[in-house]
């Protein structure tokens, strides 16, 4: 894999197997993780929840996966991501892709500057073996290790 998602993801922005009661709580976790990594302010978390209130659960773009995000605004400090896996999947009200066990928070200060990050993200999300391992990962360090070095996966499979 050419692009490396780990370089866009601060360890403070990764949470593994945390508990969320509902989709609002799940987005709040992803928002808090963005704030912890210095990507956004708390305002952005409220904007992400408002986006789903207004437009529906369209952010659940694949089975079990929600990309929580809002639009570029002053609450975005830089382009970045957060990564939250849930202990128990929660429903977002999506007809086909519920329940959600991975919430990725995404923020960008404009429409263009984050395209490399999106390429890297797409690369990870298209890799179903890697995704299974990432969802199983029990610590932020393990998530980042897998992201920065996907070869670990093959070594694991062979051992």
């Amino acid at each position: 894999m050419a692009a490396n998602l780990a370089s866009n993801l601060d360890q403070a922005s990764v949470r593994t197997h945390v508990v969320a009661a509902d989709w609002q709580a799940a987005i709040t976790l992803a928002g808090d993780a963005l704030v912890a990594g210095g990507v956004t302010t708390d305002e952005y978390t409220a904007e992400m929840i408002a986006a789903v209130d207004k437009l529906g659960p369209y952010i659940v773009i694949a089975p079990g996966l929600a990309i929580a995000h809002s639009r570029p605004s002053p609450s975005v400090l830089r382009a970045g991501l957060s990564w939250v896996t849930l202990k128990e999947p929660v429903s977002f009200g999506h007809k086909k892709n519920d329940p959600v066990s991975l919430v990725i928070g995404l923020a960008a200060p404009d429409h263009e500057g984050h395209l490399e990050m999106m390429q890297a993200l797409a690369g990870v999300l298209m890799n179903s073996d890697l995704l299974v391992a990432l969802k199983a990962a029990g610590s932020p360090a393990e998530v980042l290790a897998l992201l920065s070095n996907p070869e670990l996966l093959t070594e694991k499979a062979q051992s």
Binding site: K54, I67, L106, A108, H114, M118, A122
Partner: peptide, 16 residues
């Protein structure tokens, strides 16, 4: 098309 134009539509564009 997505709600905000920075996230899901960009992923959809790449895969399309």
């Amino acid at each position: 098309v997505c709600g905000m134009g920075i996230g899901t539509s960009v992923l959809l564009k790449m895969n399309t």
